[in-house]
């Protein structure tokens, strides 16, 4: 899954997690892994740049960026449109 690998790379570069983003489970809670509201904005910006998408305001909430799987779902929805 290339989307997931790209997401992992973005998390590695910007999320400042205590866990290893290459092995983190897709459903692992990123906030429990140390994602903060500040670092989550950097993750959003990097994802927008990487995938050439814009997250609509309805997606700008904690739950959407809470796990690799939920980020993948959001990106998939935006790139499918």
């Amino acid at each position: 899954m290339t989307i997931v690998n790209d997401i992992r790379q973005v998390l590695k570069d910007h999320a400042r997690l205590s866990a290893d983003t290459t092995t983190l489970a897709e459903d692992a809670d990123l906030y429990q892994a140390g994602l903060t509201s500040h670092s989550s904005v950097n993750v959003m910006l990097a994802l927008e740049g990487k995938f050439d998408v814009e997250f609509p305001d309805r997606m700008l909430k904690r739950g959407v960026f809470g796990s690799i799987a939920s980020i993948r779902d959001a990106i998939t929805e935006l790139t499918a449109a």
Binding site: S37, H38, V41, M44, L45, E48, E54, F55, P56, D57, L60
Partner: peptide, 13 residues
């Protein structure tokens, strides 16, 4: 500072 950060991704649609 928090608002400034959030405005980088907020679109006010």
């Amino acid at each position: 500072a928090k608002s400034a950060s959030m405005l980088l991704v907020y679109k006010d649609e």
